[in-house]
């Protein structure tokens, strides 16, 4: 984890998570069926980002895995990290993006609709924690790169065919 006061961009890889403090920003690229979850404390200008792949850690066939891979373990781990860095968990808000279906396959393989399942799982977990989702850009069939700035709580979303939007 990198925490400094130099303005910089922290990258989060697939199945990974990390935390930044303003003026740092945090980015993850190429979200397809994966979901990017931003949890942030507006007052303290601190934010965490998870690039999760799957809805639930019960899908794992090993005990040893990266917590950021699954919605449940990723969000749990991030809440602990935010707490350790002085965030007030009751003041946390969320923004989410991703959960697309990149290939239009009608198949009995449930992995083909993993995007929507990821989104549902994230929504349910955040509801359970009473963390409001302030805005989201989910579903569809497009890849997304997202960047969050804790300074103004804006989530920048870039897609190939639609350009840049902020939510």
């Amino acid at each position: 984890m990198i925490m400094s006061n130099i303005a910089e961009l922290i990258k989060v890889g697939i199945a990974d998570l990390n935390l930044v403090k303003a003026p740092q920003t945090i980015i993850t690229s190429g979200l397809g069926s994966c979901v990017g979850v931003v949890l942030y404390d507006e007052r303290r200008q601190i934010a965490g980002l998870i690039h999760l792949m799957l809805p639930d850690s019960s899908l794992s066939r090993t005990k040893d895995f990266k917590p950021g891979k699954f919605a449940d373990t990723g969000i749990d781990k991030m809440l602990n990290m935010l707490k350790d860095h002085g965030a007030n968990n009751r003041g946390l808000k969320a923004k989410i993006a991703g959960g697309a279906q990149m290939f239009n396959i009608t198949s009995s393989n449930e992995m083909m609709r993993i995007g929507p399942r990821n989104v549902e799982a994230v929504q349910q977990i955040l509801t359970d924690y009473k963390i409001p989702i302030i805005s989201s850009d989910v579903g569809g069939n497009k890849g997304r790169t997202i960047e969050f700035s804790p300074e103004d709580s804006r989530l920048k979303i870039r897609t190939v065919h639609e350009g840049v939007t902020y939510i």
């Binding site: 697939i14 199945a15 690229s29 190429g30 979200l31 397809g32 069926s33 994966c34 792949m53 799957l54 899908l59 794992s60 066939r61 090993t62 891979k69 697309a100 990149m102 290939f103 992995m111 993993i114 497009k142 890849g143 997304r144 790169t145 190939v160 065919h161």
Partner: peptide, 17 residues
């Protein structure tokens, strides 16, 4: 589309293991 968004579809089964 973005390579990451497309190829990650092929990683889902592997990612469970």
């Amino acid at each position: 589309d973005m390579v990451g968004a497309m190829l990650s579809q092929g990683l889902l089964q592997t990612s469970m293991v």
